[in-house]
Design a protein around this nucleic acid. Structure first.
Lengths: 110, 110
DNA sequence: GAACTATATTCCTGCATGGTTGATTAGTAG
DNA sequence: CTACTAATCAACCATGCAGGAATATAGTTC
């Protein structure tokens, strides 16, 4: 792993996943799923998203491995694949906190 | 932090930061900066990006606290603000690895 | 002052993608 | 079989944003 390691392909794959999390509604979906597995309609209720729209987001999250699907009769149950998302969010939240202090330091004249 | 914690505002702030990393060229910029602080033109050489384009990406990365700036004479030196980005990428890479094994398991018939 | 360089900003174009609506496919119940 | 529901798919529109060209700003040197 020298300086300029990281092939363009790998960077694209990583970016693709970050981008998937770069949409508030998708984060919300994942956040709602913390409560446990849910059907699409339950999720639609919780998130106030249109069904088709929600379905598309779920396809994407599933394709990228953020959620798992389980079909049972008429229903499809979605659930979180793992807790990585929240580890990632925690780091981002830490950054937000740091940003605020930094900004305050600037305002108060260092 | 109950079930449906996470205000929409917070979700947006987090998403905004994920989205910033959801662009291959920005990841590349950050990756190149691992070698140490650099001027815009040096970065332009390394990344093969246009100056205006690069500058815009740098503004964004700076606004979100991923890089720091230091002006010296005519030059502006950019450098990584911290190593969070790579912690984040590491997690994503871990996910990529898991994905591959998962896919392989499916192909080989579980 | 003028001439030059490095960086930032503005404007424009094209593409990617989120959201909606309406069909379409699975699965159930009668 | 038909009638119904859940979920996905397809086509569309509107917005956002990456990229590039031209312009503007800051700093240097003469």
């Amino acid at each position: 792993m020298a300086d300029t390691a990281m092939s363009p392909e790998l960077l694209s794959l990583i970016a693709e996943r970050f981008r998937a999390l770069g949409e508030p509604v998708r984060l919300e979906i994942l956040n709602v799923l913390r409560a446990g597995e849910m059907t699409v309609t339950e999720l639609a209720d919780e998130t106030e998203l249109g069904q088709a729209n929600l379905s598309k987001h779920l396809q994407l999250l599933h394709a990228l491995g953020f959620v798992t699907r389980r079909k049972e009769g008429l229903y499809v149950y979605y659930s979180l694949a793992d807790s990585d998302v929240f580890r990632l969010c925690d780091i981002m939240c830490g950054r937000l906190g740091a940003e605020t202090t930094r900004r305050r330091r600037v305002l108060t004249g260092r």
